[in-house]
Computed example of a mutant assay.
Amino acid sequence: MDETRSFERTRRELLAAGVAVGTGATAGCVSETEGGDENGTAAADSHTATLAPAGEVEFDAVPEDALVTFPQYTDMMVALGHGEAANSLFSPEMAGPTMNAFYDRLEGVSFEWEELPNPLEQGLVKEQVYELDSDVHFLDPSYVLTTEDGWSEADLEEIADAVGPWFGNFHSGVHSEPADAYADGYEYYSLWELFERVAAVFREGERYDALAAVHDDLQSTIESNLPPEDERPTAARVTLGDGEFYAYHLNADGFWQADTRPLGARDALADREWSGDWGVIDYEAMAEADPDVVLHLWGITPQYDIASVRERLEDHPVGATLAAVENDRVVAGGMRYQGPLMNLFQLEMTAKQLYPERFGEWPGHSSGESYPEIPAEERLFDRERVAEIVAGSS
């Protein structure tokens, strides 16, 4: 990224890069009498995309620079052939290698993350947002108001007007409550509905349709091969902490469960309630639930070594009694911040972990390594087809 670029662009150029929100007007356009052929080009590139809470957003051109926080948007951009537009990433040392661990199984697909700053490392800072000089900000303004100190609606509007629009939806993750300023008319989307709207930002509807077809086929394969509900295992989606577990409902609404809900396993923690986006339970509560399978969230990332997680459970007097530990069914779960490419792999992964007799054995995963090689006849989706779509050659 050219670090001097943000200081060289004038306000007029900033407005031309991205813009009017919810008004139907096109910012940065030149009139026919002033612009001639340039106006015709601008009109041809002008397009809209719609996502709550931002509403309808109009762009003069496909964004070339995008502020990205949570990696589901980065994965969407890679899937659409625009990964190079990302100028930032939340927890890059975790998200970057994890995405590439999946992409290693898609020929020609990769993501360069090493030089990207984390825009949330010190909290979202307005000066850094200006410096990144993004044509679009893939971050929910409601998230900013509910989690970031020192931000107001006026600040958000200032950035949208002077730099580029906000285009994100955070609360669809678990259908949590948005900020009061956005509560009226806030909508919840599935992962693939979000992806379709991001595809509109980049004018990549055909790529979206092609990948959605792969996803539909995978969903159909899964649904047609699931055992009857009373024959399905119980499972818990948790992350092992220091003497406790961070717990999630694997069949709950929201795109955080896009890799578990379609598998329809019985939630061992279904009767547990919590007020936030996740809960915290102790070893005794886990022993009471005693899941057949533990899907260790983030286990596929470099932050956790699933072998070490198993050892910690085996060394704990209560943990060692869990059925999942005794039967070696503590497995590396995926990331909740998953985009479409990650979702395809994580659906396949979870299907094998829960129902090996139906979908083939899960070969296991070691921290820092690529997504495991699956024999061609046991793959649940076509890697070559996906790689072709991402490359734009299909």
Results as ranks from 00 to 15, higher is better:
residue 260 T to S: 08
residue 207 R to H: 12
residue 356 P to H: 14
residue 371 Y to K: 06
residue 301 T to Y: 14
residue 104 D to M: 08
residue 191 L to I: 01
residue 348 E to T: 07
residue 151 W to V: 07
residue 248 Y to E: 03
residue 373 E to P: 02
residue 214 V to N: 08
residue 89 L to F: 12
residue 202 F to K: 01
residue 208 Y to W: 13
residue 315 D to R: 09
residue 186 Y to L: 07
residue 315 D to P: 00
residue 304 Y to Q: 11
residue 164 G to Q: 10
residue 283 Y to L: 09
residue 248 Y to A: 00
residue 125 V to T: 13
residue 228 P to T: 05
residue 73 Y to V: 00
residue 226 L to F: 12
residue 79 A to L: 03
residue 306 I to Y: 07
residue 187 E to A: 11
residue 115 E to R: 11
residue 376 A to D: 15
residue 145 L to P: 03
residue 18 G to K: 06
residue 191 L to D: 02
residue 46 S to Q: 15
residue 205 G to T: 13
residue 156 L to A: 02
residue 362 W to H: 09
residue 356 P to G: 12
residue 172 S to Q: 03
residue 117 P to K: 10
residue 57 V to W: 13
residue 216 D to S: 13
residue 171 H to I: 00
residue 95 A to V: 01
residue 391 A to I: 10
residue 180 D to G: 10
residue 363 P to W: 11
residue 117 P to Y: 12
residue 329 R to G: 01
residue 129 V to H: 07
residue 172 S to L: 01
residue 153 E to G: 11
residue 259 D to Y: 10
residue 93 E to C: 00
residue 392 G to K: 12
residue 148 E to K: 06
residue 340 P to K: 05
residue 177 E to S: 07
residue 363 P to I: 06
residue 278 W to Y: 15
residue 291 P to S: 06
residue 317 P to N: 12
residue 63 P to S: 06
residue 260 T to Y: 06
residue 260 T to R: 02
residue 170 F to N: 07
residue 169 N to C: 06
residue 380 L to N: 04
residue 238 V to C: 00
residue 139 L to M: 13
residue 231 E to C: 02
residue 138 F to W: 05
residue 392 G to E: 13
residue 3 E to L: 13
residue 129 V to L: 06
residue 67 L to N: 01
residue 325 V to S: 10
residue 199 A to T: 03
residue 43 A to K: 14
residue 53 P to L: 06
residue 361 E to P: 02
residue 163 V to A: 02
residue 331 V to K: 10
residue 47 H to G: 00
residue 124 L to V: 14
residue 385 R to V: 09
residue 152 S to R: 09
residue 253 D to A: 12
residue 133 D to N: 15
residue 205 G to Y: 12
residue 48 T to G: 15
residue 7 F to H: 08
residue 80 L to S: 07
residue 16 A to E: 14
residue 324 A to Y: 05
residue 310 R to N: 09
residue 199 A to C: 05
residue 389 I to G: 07
residue 351 A to C: 14
residue 77 M to E: 08
residue 267 D to L: 09
residue 241 G to C: 09
residue 233 P to R: 02
residue 388 E to K: 13
residue 98 T to K: 09
residue 189 Y to A: 03
residue 276 G to C: 01
residue 207 R to M: 05
residue 237 R to D: 04
residue 146 T to L: 15
residue 334 G to N: 11
residue 321 T to A: 12
residue 231 E to W: 05
residue 338 Q to T: 10
residue 268 A to I: 09
residue 65 D to A: 11
residue 290 D to Q: 13
residue 190 S to H: 07
residue 113 W to L: 03
residue 231 E to H: 07
residue 238 V to R: 02
